[in-house]
């Protein structure tokens, strides 16, 4: 089975303010959107990110072929335990998940 990053055009992650993180999966085509919308369970994304599935907000946006996933930051931005001030690397965690 392929990974998310092999099916879509691009995955981007970024802070949405210091307390939230947002991950945008740009699917690039109707087919890829359908594949990921059905084949990437929110629960698996939550597990990979070490997050509570109930805290995740997900938007499957057909008009853009984008799946957007937002969650409270696992570590608040700038906390001594924060490894990634801008939230840049969470995209890789999602891009490397295997699609069901």
């Amino acid at each position: 089975m392929p990974e998310v990053g092999e099916v879509c055009d691009k995955v981007r992650s970024k802070n949405a303010g210091p307390f939230w993180l947002t991950i945008d999966i740009f699917c690039g085509s109707d087919d890829a959107f359908a594949r990921l919308s059905g084949g990437l369970a929110t629960k698996r994304v939550a597990e990979a990110l070490g997050a509570d599935p109930k805290a995740i907000r997900r938007f499957d946006i057909k008009a853009l072929n984008v799946i957007k996933i937002s969650l409270p930051r696992p570590v608040v931005q700038g906390h001594p335990g924060d490894r990634d001030m801008h939230g840049a690397a969470w995209a890789s965690v999602v891009a490397e998940l295997v699609v069901d």
């Binding site: 970024k14 802070n15 949405a16 303010g17 939230w20 947002t22 945008d24 907000r57 938007f59 946006i61 853009l64 984008v66 957007k68 937002s70």
Partner: peptide, 8 residues
Amino acid sequence: LYENSDPF
């Protein structure tokens, strides 16, 4: 979508 937790 950019730096926004809710796109709408």
